[in-house]
């Protein structure tokens, strides 16, 4: 990945009294697949719309290849968008929808023909040229919307929850296809979603947002394995979040247990939050071999694994994912490896 292509500096947007985007800073590199992830109302779509030119920032700057983008209207930006509800032109057929941007740029007819054909091939819609967009399925409309944006060869493609309206299976297929497309044509994708799994599957970089503020920026692995605070840990995947105390470097304590961990640099007895992912807790049948002892309260079959709720002797509930189920009521031991414990500075309680 190369140079910086988009930079957001102290970007702020208010709607009336509500600050939807609060002083965010972000750098996006060429050919990067960046996902803005967060619950609805977290400001991710507004951020995307500011990059696209559909909202004007109240404060801060947007740079595109080093040049200030703020004063440039949407129609002059070399950035294209795939809209949430596709926003296709219902009065045109598939070909004309895709050719729209090229016709405005007065590209010669035969070249338009060539480029549209190439796009139709890319999105697997060959032979659909003359079809009315209303007669297409949701997935096909989505592909037209993607082709309509990509045919202009933008340097950056913005995607606003583009797969939100599709059913699960189609969504998974389209995730892979989008990723393939992004890799093969090599342009920057900025992708907005509230689906954490989608974000982890597709992105080079995930930007987790909440209440208009960026919580954490990192690779999917970083975000999942080393969430920076309770919000990120809670939003990404399932997790056991425990309020604990850092006794000293590499030792964390809560309830009646003291666990080894790999974190250091906290003050003595500093209160912290720790995250243990459900799949990182191992169960042993002999309770005495476990660091934590507890009774299995419930077992739910989840397909790939079983989800068990185990209540420790001190009354704390742990969510555990294992491929083997332990019967409800059995008394077991639980073990956690030091590197599977993520220690986070205590933030505001959620």
């Amino acid at each position: 990945m190369g140079r910086n292509i988009i930079e957001l500096k102290n970007l702020t947007k208010r709607f009336g009294d509500v600050t939807v985007v609060n002083n965010i800073n972000l750098t996006i590199k060429e050919n990067e697949f960046v996902t803005l992830l967060g619950p609805s109302g977290c400001g991710k779509t507004t951020t995307l719309r500011m990059i696209g030119g559909f909202e004007e920032p109240d404060e801060g700057q947007i740079f595109f290849e080093g040049k200030l983008l703020n004063p440039i209207p949407a129609y002059k930006r070399n950035i294209n968008t795939v809209f949430q509800r596709y926003a296709l032109f219902t009065h045109m057929n598939v070909f004309e929808n895709i050719a729209f941007g090229l016709r405005i740029k007065k590209i010669p007819k035969d070249e338009i023909e060539k480029r549209v054909k190439r796009m139709l091939k890319l999105v697997d819609l060959e032979g659909f040229e003359k079809r009315n967009v209303d007669s297409l399925s949701g997935g096909q409309q989505q592909r037209v919307a993607i082709a309509r944006a990509l045919v202009n060869e933008p340097k950056v493609l913005l995607l606003d929850e583009p797969l939100g309206a599709l059913d699960l299976k189609l969504r998974k297929e389209m995730q892979i296809e989008l990723l393939d497309m992004q890799r093969s044509i090599g342009i920057t994708f900025i992708y907005v979603t509230h689906d954490q799994e989608e974000a982890l599957t597709m992105s080079d970089t995930v930007v987790v947002m909440n209440n208009g503020v960026i919580q954490q920026v990192g690779t999917p692995q970083d975000i999942y394995n080393e969430p920076i605070n309770r919000f990120v840990a809670d939003f990404i995947g399932e997790s056991n979040i425990i309020e604990a105390v850092m006794l000293e470097d590499y030792k964390v304590a809560f309830d009646d247990v003291v666990l080894d961990c790999v974190d250091k640099g906290f003050a003595k007895n500093e209160p912290v939050d720790i995250v243990i992912r459900p799949e990182d807790i191992r169960i042993v049948t002999n309770p005495d071999e476990g660091m934590i002892k507890g009774t299995v309260k419930s077992v739910i079959f989840k397909g790939v694994h079983y989800e068990m709720m185990i209540e420790s002797d001190t009354g704390r509930e742990y969510m555990v994912h294992r491929t083997i189920a332990f019967p409800v009521g059995s008394y077991v031991g639980m073990n956690v490896q030091p590197f599977d414990i993520q220690v986070m500075k205590r933030g505001d309680p959620l």
Binding site: G52, P73, Y75, Q84, A87, L88, T90, F100, I104, N152
Partner: peptide, 18 residues
């Protein structure tokens, strides 16, 4: 008319007249 359709037009390079 969906406002997003008009945004799509300006996204694709259409000024107000277009």
């Amino acid at each position: 008319i969906d406002k997003q359709v008009l945004e799509a037009s300006s996204d694709l390079g259409g000024n107000k007249v277009v």
